[in-house]
Every structure is written in C-alpha cells, then in structure tokens.
C-alpha cells in the first residue's frame, strides 16, 4: 500500500526546506560578514577582514550608553514580567477565578494589538507625566508587553503539572504558600526560566514603542540603530546587529535547553 507519509529523504522536499531556511536566515546572517569589513560603507560581499567597526562600536559612548540602557531595561523587565506573569499564570490555572477566560483574553491583548497603536497610546500617556525617556517608563511598558509571553509559557508548564501534587503537599502539612514554593515552583522552574528569557528578549528586541518614548539621553539600542540609519549608514550598525543576534541566539539556546528539561 502506498503511504501518505512524507519521507524526509525526498530530494525536492529537502531542497525546499533548505530554501525556506535560507529565506528566513540569510538577511540576518548577511550582517555578520559585513560587520567584519574595513571600509566605511556597507558592501556585500565584504572584501577583507577587520575588527574596526567593533572597536568603533565599543569606543563610542553613545552606542555604549544605548547598549547598557537596553540591557538594563531588559533585565528589569525580565524580573518584573517573570514575577507578575508567573503569579498571573498560577491564578489563572489554579485559582477559582470568576471570568477566568475573559481575564486571560485581556492579558494576551498586547500580543494582538499592533505595537504602533500601543506605542502611540503610551506616548500620549507618558509625555505629560514625564515618563518618556526614563527607565521606569520603559520598564513599565515593556513589562506590560512581556507579561503575555510569561503567562503563556508558565501556564503551559502548570497545565502539564498534575494538580493533585498541590493537594498532596497540603495534605502532608504544607500551607498553600509553602506548597507552592516546595512543590509547584521547583517543578515549573524550567518553564519560568524559559519565560524569563522570552521576557528579556521581548524587551531587548523591542523597537516600535522604543522609537516613540526614547529620550535624548536614554535611548535603546534599537532606537539608536534607527537614528544611525538615517544619519550615516556605517558598518557599525552591522556590528551592533551582530551583537543583538548573538545575544538573542545565546539566550534562545539557554531557554531551549531549559524547556528541554521540562519535558524530561
């Protein structure tokens, strides 16, 4: 009997898969060789190898300030979103909440609303109270945007966890809080870790809102790149992009190995 199963060994299928991968990855990866070129304009393919643009990137106080600022708000966003998102997920999955589905839908709304709409709304709210261009302002809005990721990932971990374990812990003498820290938390830790990585990245990579609410002194790396594209398109942008890509890939890999532990 002929089978409908797709065989991974089919040559056309393989080629097609490779083409899709190339389409997805090449535009990003092209920045990597470009960043090692020595000329002061972007060309492809690069014709020599130098670390000039990395030196410039590291030596430029504005680029450094933007990078540090981005890392800083990403770290704070990660902390805030992970704690709040985990608490929300526990309430949604384990609590006796009336209107649970409505709350879940509202929480996930930031994923669906176009970022530019959020950005304009936030800009209009933040300007009169002086929150634009501040760490607090960035962390507030980035946390709101990151919470849905955390809620989704941690909810998935909780859903896989047998709720009888909570009951068993309480039956054995653990108060609900203690049961959470002694049983639930260790078991969903890999999920929380993965969620934290997503929260960090969602802030670190965020561009649209950052474009609106960055100030002169406090701007994110993404906003700084936008500005430089306008002013002087130099391979320093390629170097900065490569840094972002490397940080992203490194964190994704960390997150994935954490997620792999969950399913073990």
């Amino acid at each position: 009997m002929p089978s409908l199963r797709i065989r991974a060994g089919d040559l056309p299928l393989r080629l097609f898969g490779l083409a899709v991968l190339a389409f997805l990855l090449l535009p990003t990866l092209i920045m990597v060789p470009v960043s090692f070129d020595s000329v002061h304009f972007i060309r492809f393919p690069p014709r020599d190898f130098s670390l000039r643009w990395y030196r410039e990137y590291l030596a430029d106080p504005e680029w450094m300030a933007a990078t540090v600022f981005s890392l800083q708000i990403a770290a704070l966003t990660m902390l805030a979103a992970t704690v709040l998102g985990t608490m929300t997920a526990v309430a949604l999955e384990r609590g006796r909440l009336p209107g649970r589905e409505a709350i879940r839908a509202l929480l996930l709304a930031p994923l669906l609303v176009p970022h530019v709409v959020v950005a304009i709304a936030v800009y209009l709210q933040f300007t009169p109270i002086g929150l634009t261009g501040t760490t607090t302002g960035f962390v507030l809005i980035h946390t709101a945007l990151a919470i849905p990721y955390v809620v989704l990932v941690v909810s998935a971990s909780l859903a896989r966890l047998d709720p009888t374990l909570d009951r068993a812990a309480m039956n054995l003498g653990a108060s609900p809080t203690r049961a959470f820290f002694a049983v639930t938390l260790p078991l969903i830790r890999p999920g929380i870790f993965a969620a934290a990585v997503f929260a960090f990245l969602s802030s670190f990579d965020e561009t649209v809102v950052a474009f609106f609410i960055s100030g002169d002194r406090h701007k994110t790396l993404t906003r700084k790149m936008f500005e430089d594209i306008d002013m002087n398109l130099s391979p320093i942008i390629a170097a900065a992009s490569t840094v972002i890509v490397v940080v992203t890939i490194a964190l994704m890999w960390l997150g994935r190995s954490a997620a792999a532990q969950v399913s073990k």
Partner: peptide, 28 residues
C-alpha cells in the same frame, strides 16, 4: 484547612513529587 487536619492520604495516582527522591518524598 487541609494542611492542619493531620490526615494522611494515598492518592489514586500516588501524587509523588517527581523532583524529590523516594526518601525525600517520605520525609516531606
């Protein structure tokens, strides 16, 4: 509340804590 009842329970699917060893489960 359940944790102050001093009642032991054996659950249908055992409900052992997967992150703890047998001895740690018993010592819980």
């Amino acid at each position: 509340p359940p944790h102050k009842r001093d009642i032991g329970m054996v659950f249908q699917k055992y409900a052992l804590f997967p992150h703890l060893t047998a001895a740690q489960n018993i010592a819980f």
